[in-house]
């Protein structure tokens, strides 16, 4: 990564991670640690799903990334610029939706966007109208541009917030729970929009407590649990962390379990027959090859009725990482 020549130095600068943090920590005045030493690494061009249950520290992290809250310790950088010190230098390259939409209810959608655009010192006032129209068009709100924000539906409010992040060409978009409160139709629309934004080469950082929402669009994921980042990496890597299990349907599960254990498979378990479901023996496959396991079972005289290797669903992995519901600590 060390640059030796001038052009290479420029390359490393542009290839700086879209978001990085090291030891980022937020301790609230009451002593509660909301974010605990997290090291984010969001590659440029990725769609990064920032997952975790409600109250796991996602929003606090995003607030620190955007310079809204100051970290207790640790540091963060957006597009290679240190935050919060570089806020005024880098944030105009970053679009964001933080903790739900917020606009003046007595202004129209377009006027609300014009207000935020006026606050941007690097935005060209001459192109403001055109850019606002384009952003509204992109989220499908052009027809409601002259309607007061107070009369917007929840989905329209959410889309207007996304539009405010699209007022300028951005290199990074940070979306905090963009589908919160949306109906399935709205959720699909937002998902399509995120795909579109990502297709333009913009890095997207999207936080959510819904795995299903993220699974379909993300290339990378980070999983938060009670303030700690318990997993981070490409989505396929998360899939790989799940240990595949081999399941054998047989009339004699105890004998099958013995064979599995003898083959060095861990965590062999027996499930008795129940109704139409045959009795099963199961174990973690590990490094063993399924073909060999099956052959050994037959060799040992086990009547194999069914044989399956199953990887855990992403949902299971997610719950395994974040814990079942209702155990949000703190």
């Amino acid at each position: 990564m060390t640059a030796t020549t001038a052009p290479a130095a420029t390359d490393t600068a542009t290839a700086a991670p879209a978001i990085s943090s090291s030891g980022l920590t937020k301790r609230f005045r009451g002593g509660q640690v909301a974010v605990d030493h997290i090291d984010l690494a969001v590659p440029q061009g990725s769609v990064y799903g920032f997952l975790g249950p409600n109250g796991s520290g996602k929003t606090t992290t995003i607030r620190m990334l955007l310079g809204l809250a100051f970290p207790t310790t640790g540091s963060a950088a957006l597009l290679g610029v240190a935050m919060p010190d570089g806020a005024t230098r880098v944030l105009h390259r970053v679009g964001s939706l933080v903790e739900g939409p917020a606009f003046y209810p007595f202004l129209t959608g377009a006027d609300n966007l014009a207000r935020y655009d006026a606050a941007d010192r690097t935005a060209d006032p001459a192109t403001a109208r055109a850019r606002i129209q384009a952003a509204l068009d992109r989220v499908g709100l052009l027809a409601a541009a002259k309607k007061r924000y107070r009369n917007y539906s929840l989905g329209m409010k959410q889309r207007l917030a996304i539009a405010s992040g699209l007022l300028r060409p951005r290199e990074l978009i940070i979306l905090d729970e963009p589908t919160n409160g949306l109906d399935p139709q709205g959720t699909r629309e937002v998902r399509a929009l995120i795909r579109q934004i990502a297709a333009d080469g913009t890095t997207v950082f999207v936080s959510s407590h819904l795995l299903a929402e993220v699974e379909q669009i993300c290339t990378h994921v980070g999983v938060m649990r009670t303030g700690a980042l318990v997993f981070q990496g490409p989505l396929p890597e998360l899939r790989r962390t799940g240990a595949a299990r081999v399941t054998v349907q047989t009339a004699d599960p105890e004998a099958a379990a013995k064979v599995l254990t003898a083959l060095g498979l861990a965590d062999a378990q027996v499930t008795a027959a129940e109704g139409a479901t045959a009795a099963e023996a199961a174990a973690i496959l590990g490094d063993a090859s399924p073909e060999k396991v099956c052959a050994e079972l037959v060799q040992a005289g086990i009547g194999v009725r069914g044989f399956a290797v199953t990887a855990p669903s992403l949902e299971d992995l997610f719950v395994g990482l974040t814990g079942e519901g209702f155990d949000v600590s703190g």
Binding site: R63, L66, G67, L68, A87, T88, L91, H92, V94, S96, V98, E99, G100, A102, F103, Y104, P105, Y116, A119, D120, R121, A161, S164
Partner: peptide, 14 residues
């Protein structure tokens, strides 16, 4: 109160 402060600062208004 409206929450618009966080968006103004994220613009960034400075």
């Amino acid at each position: 109160g409206y929450g618009t402060l966080r968006y103004l600062l994220a613009v960034p208004a400075g």
